[in-house]
Design a binder for these strands. Sequence first.
DNA 1: GATGAATGAGCTTTCATTCAT
DNA 2: TATGAATGAAAGCTCATTCAT
Lengths: 188, 188, 188, 188
Amino acid sequence: MSDKRERILAAAEALIAHCGFHGMSMQLVAKHANVATGTIYRYFADKETLLRCVHEERLHEVSHAILQNVDTNDPGYAQFRQLWLNTMRYLQDNPDSLCYRIQYEASPLFNREEEHQINERYFKPVFEFFERGREAGLFRDMPAELLGFLALENLMLLSQKCTKGCIELDECLYQQLLDASWNAILKR
Amino acid sequence: MSDKRERILAAAEALIAHCGFHGMSMQLVAKHANVATGTIYRYFADKETLLRCVHEERLHEVSHAILQNVDTNDPGYAQFRQLWLNTMRYLQDNPDSLCYRIQYEASPLFNREEEHQINERYFKPVFEFFERGREAGLFRDMPAELLGFLALENLMLLSQKCTKGCIELDECLYQQLLDASWNAILKR
Amino acid sequence: MSDKRERILAAAEALIAHCGFHGMSMQLVAKHANVATGTIYRYFADKETLLRCVHEERLHEVSHAILQNVDTNDPGYAQFRQLWLNTMRYLQDNPDSLCYRIQYEASPLFNREEEHQINERYFKPVFEFFERGREAGLFRDMPAELLGFLALENLMLLSQKCTKGCIELDECLYQQLLDASWNAILKR
Amino acid sequence: MSDKRERILAAAEALIAHCGFHGMSMQLVAKHANVATGTIYRYFADKETLLRCVHEERLHEVSHAILQNVDTNDPGYAQFRQLWLNTMRYLQDNPDSLCYRIQYEASPLFNREEEHQINERYFKPVFEFFERGREAGLFRDMPAELLGFLALENLMLLSQKCTKGCIELDECLYQQLLDASWNAILKR
DNA sequence: GATGAATGAGCTTTCATTCAT
DNA sequence: TATGAATGAAAGCTCATTCAT
């Protein structure tokens, strides 16, 4: 059994994260993944396809991580708290993944269709949570995507600042940020 | 007097915004700016320098735009509101600038030192506003950078989603978002 | 018993004919022949050998086709006519074979030694016919190879023009061309 | 003034002639033409374009060479003789050009449209000669293209055989071949 | 015998940068 | 100052060949 595919994905992600889009070449990916250049092309049609696959693969992971231990029978805040903590932990624990994602999603490779498909495929339960909260009059009267964005997706840029060392968080700030997110989406 | 320098900066920004880091070559920049390739090197030492200059130049602009009509004698909310509206307007009116900035700041070109310098140089008044608010017990007990981030910088990703067509905003949502930002930083 | 060898030869010929020397790769040959890449190397030492074999194989076929129904007891013109018609029919019926042959023989793979060997091995009867005609004072006083060339081999380029659609032949032109070949080699 | 373009064309022609289509790489062309690889791309959009240009350029030359000293006031045979000798001399004197042409015209790069355009552009006077001869009842009742082919173009394959050393010509054979061509197209 | 995943040298092409004009 | 032709290293990708199964 071979894990070449996963090694290639990981190498591409790490290279982009550390050296940027322009510092990632197929030859370097091959070297870091410990395979021959040609081997990459047995798994991915071309560079663009590889980049898209990294993105999708990682979002698939994210969606798993986010939903862990979220019990739809819990009260709203408990669920939200779990979602928020899961998100934050994943972002902090996977700085390469985050750094890759921001660069990818800001690039012209990424577009509305892809965003839509990925939300549909991986993040439905998350949006349903916000949907339910809104219908229960708990959250602001906004599309679930927007609520989700304000509460969770927004954490990406914040987390990036931490990773880059621009901001340092302690336990107390952590608590405050969780609270800030909650207050942002809460109906008055 | 010649506007070549500005034309080059604009061309670089637009190319990265529309074609990504990898779609921007010096010859393409030259063509779009209507100058010879060699001319670029009379104004910028090399490609990296050019990219850094685009970033700094635009943040300089942003800082002007954000502070317009903000009167430090106004009540806190009024000042905040003005800052928020200025920020949002600039982001929406300059999608290339936004798109460039996110890509640049996610790239390895950007680091803590640069961030710090730029904040120091251009955004001091903004941070001072949040500082004062916090000291007056209005805002959460957080570093001004973090308050500023939650209230304003966070709007970048949101704005990008609009630009890419993933989210559509109407007047009502606009109002809600302003309110959400305000609630995020407000002390309970 | 397996026809893999023949399938490989046919695939190589067809690919070169339709896509040129540079459009023929071993993996493409394998795919078209419905075998694994490695399998080709069980039948042919390397690519060059494969190409040489296609050439030889086809010339072997040609020599058979050309000599069909040629009776050395017939008068000279009758024999010539049969040779000419056989040649022309084969060329028209096997456009891939023709196209391959011209490309191969124009390439540096092909040289005097190979030409000589093939003539010796497969086309002896043809040359003997021209030899006899010349000695009987019917044909020009030229080496048999040259007579054969003028009368038959020359038809290759003509046939290629037809295949590529540059020239269209009807029954009447056909007759004239046969006559032209005959007159070219005839002693005055 | 720079002759880089011509040097590149010549290098490409020679390489294909001696090493075949697959032995000609852009790097090798650059080396033989004494320019940098990138320089080729300032003169030719890509490899295919370069190959097409070599072909057109050389046919342009051929057409000049063929028509030298052909006087339309001369008798038919004199004109024909001059055309034939010109053609033969050019072919013998420019073996690379010939070898290139046969390979190119046998390849899938070459098609009816290109053939037609080139005939139209460069070989009109030649076809007109055969046209006039036919209308005067001197030549066979065939399209001028076919007469031209039988009398002149056919010499390519013959000349290739000489170049490759498969056939050797002396003055006497030369005379006979000229005569053979004349007899091939002559009306009985 | 037969397979096809893997290899890495070598292909075409691009592009940051230089420099003679 | 400004130009843009020229450079050649390095990019993305292909493909003849091998070899463990």
